[in-house]
Design a protein around this nucleic acid. Structure first.
Lengths: 152, 152
DNA sequence: CGGGAATAGTTGAAAGTTCAGCTATGTTGA
DNA sequence: TCAACATAGCTGAACTTTCAACTATTCCCG
């Protein structure tokens, strides 16, 4: 029986740089969105809805798309409803279902904020990587995403 | 005046794969730690303390090392103190200061859990990347970490 | 058809995080 | 020396996330 396979120096550096990069970047992006009174979570919802036909999505689909629990999404949408960014609408086909729908205000908000947010993502992340690095990143991470999705 | 520079398809895929990978991976690692009644945050504290001389760190240093606010760390340490994993000790040199110190129980816990956690990190991340990919990842992310640290 | 299982979503309480403000100690320079 | 400022850390309230339990509807199959 063999002992635990500790991470090599290379492995550890890669793993820790991912963790540090992510934490710092999210803090920064969140911070830069605060100027518009949005959180990163709000933003993610707005993007998803704005890209969907009818500017609406079923709650479950939205939860899956944003990788969060239904419960969490439900609270999140309640808060955004209170802010006037979205509304809930009943679903006719499946009477258990609910749509989250972007309001005009929500639409205007994402239109206004998106350019700034994209600029932030560029400044702190995308523009600091070459095209090759971006391709390599996607090639590395996509299979891991697939793997993790199969687990649940 | 030019319009916003939207992300290209490549850029968007890379960015979104990073985000999705991270969320899924953290959920999974957190989940696998739950078996040992630890959160990822608990684990990170234990690792930092266990790697420090005297199994202790100043609160501020620990906050910096784990990239979180002093307030958040303070609450976090209080919870871990309640669980018996760490204790606070006054600092003699600087009487404003406090050490977080690993208890014997905290030390035993990290010894016991680390092999399992490392195995998780391998299974879901490290072992899914080649050495070249790991090097490339570190090379890509480390400069971004440096950049973000200068911002605060 | 009808009853059990699965799915969609919400809820409220507990746990965790953020924010602003507070105390205490240390550092600096007129 | 001592006032002003900076640093270290804590606290409580507000906010967010998690967890388990709950209702309502739909699906599946004997």
């Amino acid at each position: 029986m063999t002992g635990p396979r500790w991470l090599s120096a290379t492995e550890q550096r890669a793993w820790r740089s991912h963790l540090a990069m992510h934490k710092l970047l999210m803090h920064r992006l969140d911070r830069e969105l605060q100027e518009f009174e949005l959180s990163l979570n709000d933003y993610e919802i707005l993007v998803n809805l704005s890209e969907s036909p009818g500017r609406r999505m079923r709650m479950s689909d939205l939860a899956d798309a944003t990788i969060q629990s239904r419960s969490r999404l439900s609270h999140q949408i309640s808060r955004m409803e209170a802010k006037g960014l979205v509304v809930r609408e009943d679903c006719r086909d499946d009477r258990r279902g609910t749509f989250a729908v972007l309001t005009d205000d929500g639409w205007a908000t994402i239109q206004r904020v998106a350019p700034h947010h994209v600029a932030s993502v560029r400044e702190h992340f995308v523009d600091r990587l070459s095209d090759d690095q971006l391709d390599a990143l996607e090639a590395a991470y996509t299979p891991i995403v697939e793997h993790l999705k199969t687990l649940r």
